[in-house]
Computed example of a mutant assay.
Amino acid sequence: MEETYYKSSGKAPIGGVLFAIIAGVCASVILAIVYIALQWFIPIVYFNFLITFGLAYGLFYVLDVLLKIGKVRNKGIALLFTFICTLVAYYAQWCLFVSLMFNAEGTMGGDMWLKSSFNLDGFLYFLFHPMDMFSGIQELNAVGTFSLKKSVVSGWPLWILWGIEAATIIVYPIVLAFSGKTTEPFSERGNEWMRKRELEKQIAYIADKQALEQNLGKKDFTDLQTYLETDELGAEFATVTIYESDADNYQYISVVNHRLETNKKGDIVDKKTNVLQYFKIPERSL
């Protein structure tokens, strides 16, 4: 029976996986170093939360690109790969932070230690001596690593903040990976990811998903053409994304409903709802 929606082959080329792992681990360490450098030289506690989210998204983006280059279309392997690399990044940033703190001079001033210098030997030592690194974390927790409103944050409050940081760096990229590149249509015949193309024209809001799905399944595009010919859309409309490859005689489409609403602040909010995702249609239908 012909598949109505795209179903991944689940293939993961050994060469692509090895490439992704090697490049992913290296990229994770580099991003972790950049992350600590930004936190060290921009000692603003509230801004550091944004930096943490930046690291998490940066990890997802880089790892997703590596999976795309490696042509890995196995979601399970992609999630495991993302998990391993986020752990590497989290561990590496702690090794660097602990080494910097143990090389710091003076006392805590504002939100950071007064002076510190990067020591490669110290970073590598903690990198290959995890027990000493964990002991260092406990020592830092006892004395605190920053102050908030002139009060040093240490003990359980600091553990909680570090726990939130860990969840952000490790969990957030994995959540994003659930809808990453490995879930998009791949042309097995052409051995390439299908090109992504959005219709320039918005279409009418899809009120009856089931009817549209049934008609498309029968290769009846009358409803969709009618939607495309609608001019006045107002605050409710839909957008269509097409996935295609020169090697295949079919396409996949995704349809998203949009409803523009005004919130309490007077800002316009675009509320999106997936109608169809990767629905198979004949080639050149749209």
Rank of each mutant, 00 (worst) to 15 (best):
F126W: 09
G16D: 12
Q93S: 13
D208G: 09
L50D: 05
S28N: 09
L161D: 14
A207T: 08
T262N: 04
K7N: 02
A211S: 14
P43E: 06
K218L: 10
Q277K: 15
F146W: 06
E165P: 08
S8C: 09
G106C: 01
Q251W: 14
K196G: 02
F126V: 05
I14F: 13
L114C: 06
S8T: 15
R284Q: 13
R73M: 03
E139D: 14
N249S: 13
V175P: 01
N249C: 07
L176G: 01
I44V: 15
T273G: 09
L63T: 06
E165Y: 07
V34Q: 00
T86D: 00
I160P: 04
T52L: 01
L66H: 01
V45F: 11
K11R: 11
D270K: 02
I14C: 10
D248Q: 07
E244T: 09
F279R: 00
D248T: 06
K71L: 11
D267H: 13
V88F: 02
I160K: 06
F126T: 01
V171S: 13
P185V: 02
T82H: 13
L66V: 01
L140K: 10
L216G: 05
G144L: 05
K219C: 08
C95T: 03
L66G: 00
F49M: 05
S245M: 04
E200L: 02
T183A: 10
A235M: 09
T145Q: 06
I21L: 12
K115L: 08
W113H: 14
W156Q: 13
E2F: 11
T230F: 08
Q202T: 10
N74A: 03
I30K: 12
F102E: 11
F134C: 11
V171G: 10
I36G: 00
V152E: 05
I268H: 03
P157R: 00
Y91M: 05
F186W: 05
K196A: 01
L224I: 15
A27E: 06
F97D: 11
L80E: 07
A20E: 03
T107W: 07
M101D: 12
F19M: 09
V269L: 07
I14Y: 12
L127G: 02
L199P: 04
G10V: 12
A92T: 04
G190K: 00
